[in-house]
Design a protein around this nucleic acid. Structure first.
Lengths: 229, 229
DNA sequence: TTCCTTTACCTTACGCCGTATGGTTGCCTT
DNA sequence: AAGGCAACCATACGGCGTAAGGTAAAGGAA
């Protein structure tokens, strides 16, 4: 009525925000140009006025995630100022992890991208700076980066997701299977039994609880501490 | 002429072999039902008589890779019999890695699959057995599996691939960029300079050389040795 | 006021994809 | 000879990303 415009014009920012909302809600596979456009009350081809295409859209998502990580890491660095290297790195990685927990699709997207998003360079520069402060040579810093792998960006690249989300496994079949499994896979079944393994916290959709994440982190930190000579 | 059949009949095995050849040669994205069928001198729909669909085809590829790993690991185990736990695990992981080097697409495929291929359970059972032999509790064995992550299957999930394969970067632009980069990313540029970084061996398409792989392995092994108490 | 350019959005169409449906062929058995 | 069945194919549908070109409206210049 009073306002002239029937609606706010489209923009790269609005498109990216809608894309993130869509992917948060329905997963990466649900992100198509047509669906995204429909959610914005627009036709698919209109998106191309603001984005260079599907790949550019995905680049935008990555950029947004890296941006969130930079903010979170900045806050973590501020509170950990003056700490030793491993406390500070720990803070960085866990801050990045908090972002990944908000966007469970991010690991898969990140590791599928063909080029390194620019923001990542800055992030890695900060890690190297922390390692140098901690007295590491460039050589060890380099190796540390490789050793951290995806942990540096907040996720453990567990190769497989657990059983199935929501797929209620037949209990009876599971029991008879268990007997066969105990025979074929004695050590694995024994471990599962011993660990009880209440599936307490399958974060990120992976079998990758906070505890395991931090355990691995400390394993690597301890090793690096020793490698420093 | 003499033979009656104009050609050997299709089969799951022939289809899978052709699929692996196609993917080895042209990458995962080139694997479509139509292209695979064409390569076999057949129409796309004929594949559905031997395979349950695209997902089933990908499951078959995974199964084949796991099979190769099992063979390679079996050989490694045979030669390392009687060794200590870390020598044996090392042999397993490096054997798996040799398979991954033959099939650079395998890591991406493996980590994109929605369910765990059956063969993997047996593989992990063997790892747990080795750890138990080495005196580890189930608790630590469990954590070790998480800590190994994708290393256990022979690849380090480096998150990003290096620059671009074959994309000759403009040298002049690269030089001016270098100056800007040295300012924005002082630690990273210093590290690259210090490491010379002759890109000696970008195996698997990732920046993940054999040396880095083994370094990370030993870092984790050392840490676990200590965690055993 | 009139005209023209630019911006933002839309329509249509093309060539891919995976696959449901329903033939058609030719060997094997009886 | 007849029937069955395994193996393969033709057609078609809905969805994808996006190239090419059309259109409505806003803004500045005359």
């Amino acid at each position: 009525m009073g306002a002239r415009k029937s609606r706010e014009p489209l923009s790269r920012e609005r498109a990216l925000a809608a894309a993130i909302a869509l992917v948060d809600a329905e997963g990466l596979a649900a992100l198509t140009m047509r669906r995204l456009a429909a959610g914005l009350g627009v036709e698919a081809m209109s998106l191309y006025y603001h984005l260079p295409g599907k790949e550019g859209l995905l680049d935008g998502l990555v950029e947004a995630v890296i941006g969130e990580i930079e903010v979170a890491v900045g806050r973590a660095e501020a509170t950990a100022a003056g700490g030793d290297w491993r406390t500070r790195l720990r803070g960085r990685f866990l801050a990045a992890r908090a972002v990944m927990l908000r966007h469970p699709w991010a690991p898969a997207l990140l590791s599928s991208r063909p080029t390194i998003p620019v923001g990542v360079y800055g992030y890695y520069d900060g890690i190297i700076a922390t390692l140098r402060d901690g007295g590491f040579s460039y050589r060890i810093a380099h190796r540390a980066l490789h050793a951290f792998g995806s942990l540096a960006l907040g996720f453990a690249q567990e190769v497989f997701r657990p059983a199935a989300a929501g797929g209620a496994t037949d209990v009876e079949a599971a029991e008879t299977d268990l007997a066969a499994m105990a025979e074929a896979l004695p050590h694995l079944t024994a471990m599962v039994a011993a660990e009880a393994h209440a599936a307490e916290d399958p974060t990120l959709g992976w079998c990758d609880s906070q505890t395991e994440f931090e355990f691995t982190l400390d394993l690597l930190f301890d090793g690096l501490e020793r490698a420093r000579e």
